[in-house]
Simulated scan of single mutants.
Amino acid sequence: MATQAQYVVYATGLVALLGSAPALAQTANGAPIQPVGERPPEQEVQPEVQAMAEFGGVLTPRGRLVLEPEFQYSHESINRMTFEGVEILSTLLIGVFTAQDLDRDSYTASLTGRLGFTDRLELEMKIPYVYRDETSRVTVAEVDPPFDLDRALSGNSLGDIELAAHYQLNRGLNGHPFYIANLRYKSTTGEGPFDIRRNSEGTPQELPTGTGFHSIEPSLTVLLPSSPAVFFANLGYVFNLEDSINKPVGNIHVGDVDPGDAVRLSFGMAYSINPRSSFTLGYKNDFIGKTKTQYFDPDTGASETRSSNTLNVGSMLLGWSYQLNRDVSINLGLELGITDDAPDTILTLRVPFGMDVF
């Protein structure tokens, strides 16, 4: 009889299927024992711990609860110089130079709970608490007199609570990949960009801790075990729901705001070093559409709709994992931004631990 396969939790939360061929029993004279009768049908093997919700994965077994404390640090630095004026020669510019230096840091502590409701269905809830700070300096030259504008902002509060469901579509037998259907909902429990305090001119006095808009994200995850590795891919679409703000921001009245939807793609490979440790290498990319905002002029009553630019957020994924025991593991993930719109670095520490509840 074949031995049961062993699952190892990866740093990105992806679960690799490990196993080896069983040794054949022998008779006393060394001849192998021949099998008698029919081989029993192959049984479906469920892993012990669910994968990271961002990428999906093979689900938590029925009756098992996984609690995952998480701490995430994100850093973004922007250095930009612009020129408005006339170029007479390649070495002679007449106009205004503006230099901007911006540093953003975000600290998020969250607790995620995942429950195996059945062997095919898993339910998830994530509660984050967010602290953000931002420092910026804008220098304007070629004006009389030149000036510097320094600003420091911060904000901290409950972030956007998320709810998700994951359903395993197939059994993944005979070397076939696993297909996981995911559905995620993000609430507006955090302070959005139109909920924060502003002065009479509309300048923010603090930073938001949430997006301010409801969103729904269906996605499909594919996992292909190939011992000692597992290949993964995820494709999803984020529907950011339109909302009527109906608030004044400085001298402008904001009406309906339609955030741009996003296409999310990720893929990579998780590789087992030994039964306790593993590493992951991957890539993810978010293609975010334009945000459309409707403005009203209180004096004339005229309205205008403006659109922002599209965003391309791409990052390399690196991960490490160590399994302390059957119930507890330590996962460390690193994201390195490789597009202009992506944060420079995101460092994430997770310590999931599981328990049987029914």
Rank of each mutant, 00 (worst) to 15 (best):
T188E: 08
R326Y: 06
N234S: 03
S90M: 09
L115C: 08
M125Q: 11
E134P: 04
V328W: 13
V357H: 09
S187T: 15
K247H: 03
T305S: 07
T12R: 12
G95R: 06
S308A: 05
R62Q: 15
L92A: 11
R306F: 13
R198F: 08
E44G: 04
L59C: 11
R151H: 05
R62I: 10
P61G: 01
V230T: 10
V257D: 10
F239M: 07
T293H: 04
A99N: 12
R264Q: 13
T221W: 00
V9F: 06
V66T: 12
D133A: 12
G85F: 12
V45N: 15
L115F: 14
T27K: 15
H214I: 04
F213N: 07
E191Y: 12
A53Y: 02
G116S: 01
L121D: 08
A233K: 04
A141R: 08
I288R: 13
Q294W: 08
L59I: 15
G116N: 02
L14K: 08
S157N: 15
S277T: 10
Y179T: 05
S227M: 07
G159Y: 03
P225V: 00
N285F: 10
T339M: 07
T139L: 09
G63P: 01
I216S: 03
N312E: 10
G19D: 14
A25N: 12
P32F: 15
Q34G: 08
R114P: 04
Y295P: 00
D160T: 11
G260H: 03
G95A: 10
F194A: 06
V138Y: 04
T108Q: 12
E70M: 10
R264F: 13
Q72D: 06
T139M: 02
Q50S: 14
V130R: 11
L349M: 08
N79E: 08
T12H: 13
D258A: 15
S110A: 14
D101K: 13
E122C: 00
G314N: 02
V254D: 09
A233L: 06
T188D: 02
G354A: 15
K186S: 12
S154H: 15
A302V: 11
Y271K: 09
V249L: 14
G210R: 00
R184D: 00
T112R: 15
P225N: 03
L334V: 12
K292L: 12
A229Y: 05
S303P: 00
V58I: 13
L281M: 08
V138A: 07
R350G: 05
R198S: 10
P208C: 06
L67M: 10
L207S: 03
S157G: 10
N29F: 03
L207F: 01
H166M: 10
T12A: 13
G37H: 09
F178T: 00
G37P: 09
L121P: 06
V140E: 02
N182E: 05
L14C: 06
G159K: 09
T293P: 06
L65I: 12
Y129M: 03
P35T: 03
E134R: 09
A5H: 04
G289V: 00
L224D: 07
M1C: 08
M269A: 14
A141G: 11
P204V: 06
L111P: 02
R120G: 07
